[in-house]
Amino acid sequence: MHTIWSRINNISALLSSCMMGLFAAIALSSLAQQFFQAPLDPSSVSITSLKVAPGKGKQSKVDHALVQFELDANLTPLFNWNTKQLFVYLDAEYTNSKGVKNSVVIWDRIVRSKSSAKFHVEARQKYAFRDVTGFRDSAATYTLRYNLMPHVGALVYGVAGSTNNSIPFPPLAKNNV
């Protein structure tokens, strides 16, 4: 009854249930905090330059969009006791002439601390933005989204801001090669 094994067993069982209880409390309390807090100030997203160019070589039939943008965001309210990091990404959504709904991430950033959660970015895209059928006659909306990743618990997604209307793609630039 009171052997060393049963003592070890009891202590480890108690320890693991306490840990689980603590984890659950942290996860639930941070979810509740996010639910009750005031909504985020919308971030400003603006596209400063947008060009469409034909691809080079093998990809000559594929249209490439070249985007430059400006972001102004303050995501500090998203940081609480259970925030490990924010994954912030700029999402371009459009429907092309073939009726295919597309959504492409053109830029992303990992925010790991509250002090870097307020940022102003002027940059060009990080990832290729291309369409096999071409961008003509379509327009994209650019939305800044975030994924809040907790130390423990559920992943939360949200929108930080967007270009309020869709921005039409310009006609294909002449191939100046």
Binding site: Y89, D91, K101, N102, S103, R145, Y157
Partner: peptide, 26 residues
């Protein structure tokens, strides 16, 4: 959606991979 973290398994590969969605085309 973009930004979702998926676990996927390519036929022939034995280990599933955990990665984030970068592009979706419906």
């Amino acid at each position: 959606h973009n930004g979702d973290i998926t676990v996927y398994k390519i036929p022939g590969a034995d280990i599933p991979i955990v990665h984030r969605v970068l592009e979706t085309h419906d």
